[in-house]
């Protein structure tokens, strides 16, 4: 197990370096004055430009620039945005909100996705199964931002069950509606994946053997069918964290949640290149680390993986 963790850690380093290098290269190593290019046709205050030049050490050779960029990233020295606020301080304030939103969305998709998928898989071909299958296709087909507006309109404006926009003080309850919107598409995927894997495991030899041993049905379902079906679901949830981040940009924008996604959304609307690069780099770091965590969870779920060479 320890060897597995070490190996995974070692694998994460080149991926992180490669990805940040890719991001950095795209923005700063292409011809032209990157600072001017970052802002396009907008003109930020001179002081912002000066701060950026100092931040990114543009007179140094590329590799040194990248080194300093990395060092800045790890020391959270992320520079300033248009209004000369330090990005790190802003992030520290808004990150917890996004984390709450993500946890809520993850919980919704994992719990409901697995539960519905399990029941559908166990009753394959029955009414519940076919209904859920068709419904999940429709949910997958409706893009998050469409879903966001529809939910905002229906639950926020017409029914008044939730605040249509969240605003500055975001609590768990306020975030429920955006979390449902954010989690719904993945919920459908988790459901379908769980169903497929439950159906497959139901016919597995070891499940038949477990039944032949005299185990009760609930025990066979929980300890053998469901437990083994969790493996692909966990893999999916990990790989999908990136999609969750992308969805958070849209969802937080629509519901005006004061989080990282919203900040990125605003920066995109205003064309604030440096802010985008800084936040995306941090998110890539989070994504890679989160995937590492998922891998460990995966190894815990599937003992075979720990011994693979």
């Amino acid at each position: 197990m320890i060897r597995y963790i070490v190996r995974r850690l070692l694998q994460v380093i080149p991926v992180f370096l490669g990805t940040t290098l890719l991001v950095y290269f795209m923005v700063f190593a292409l011809p032209g004055d990157p600072i001017a290019a970052l802002f396009g046709d907008r003109q930020p205050p001179q002081s912002v430009i000066d701060a950026l030049r100092a931040q990114y050490n543009l007179d140094q050779p590329f590799i040194v620039q990248y080194g300093i960029f990395l060092k800045n990233l790890f020391t959270l020295n992320l520079g300033v945005d248009f209004t000369q606020q330090p990005i790190a301080a802003t992030l520290a304030r808004i990150f917890p909100v996004t984390a709450m939103l993500a946890v809520e969305a993850l919980a919704i998709q994992a719990i409901f996705g697995v539960a519905f998928g399990l029941v559908a898989g166990l009753r394959r071909g029955k009414l519940f199964d076919s209904t859920v299958l068709v419904a999940s296709l429709v949910v997958i087909a409706v893009p998050t931002f469409v879903l966001g507006f529809v939910f905002q309109l229906v639950f926020g404006v017409y029914l008044g069950w939730a605040k249509p926009t969240v605003g500055a003080q975001a609590g768990w309850g306020d975030l429920l509606l955006p979390a449902v919107v954010l989690g719904l598409v993945s919920f459908a995927y988790v459901l379908r994946l769980t169903r497929a894997s439950v159906t497959e495991n139901m016919n597995a030899d070891y499940v038949r053997t477990a039944t032949a041993k005299g185990l009760s049905r609930p025990r066979v379902v929980l300890a053998h069918i469901l437990r083994n079906s969790m493996i692909p679901v966990v893999t999916y949830l990990g790989a999908n964290l990136g999609g969750l981040m992308g969805g958070a940009i849209v969802t937080e924008g629509i519901f005006n949640v004061p989080g990282v996604g919203n900040k990125l959304y605003q920066a995109t609307l205003r064309g604030e290149g440096p802010t985008i690069v800084a936040i995306v780099s941090i998110l890539v770091l989070v994504f890679v680390l989160a995937n590492l965590l998922v891998d460990l969870l995966y190894a815990w779920l599937d003992p075979r993986i720990r011994y693979e060479a």
């Binding site: 991926v15 990805t19 396009g40 990136g242 940009i249």
Partner: peptide, 26 residues
């Protein structure tokens, strides 16, 4: 595989945000 991992670690929408900020794409 490593190359794929690197691109894989850049989620679609986030990566698109960065790339579309490039002068060429803008």
């Amino acid at each position: 595989a490593r190359l794929g991992d690197i691109f894989f670690a850049l989620p679609l929408i986030l990566g698109a945000l960065v790339i579309t900020q490039l002068p060429f794409f803008r």
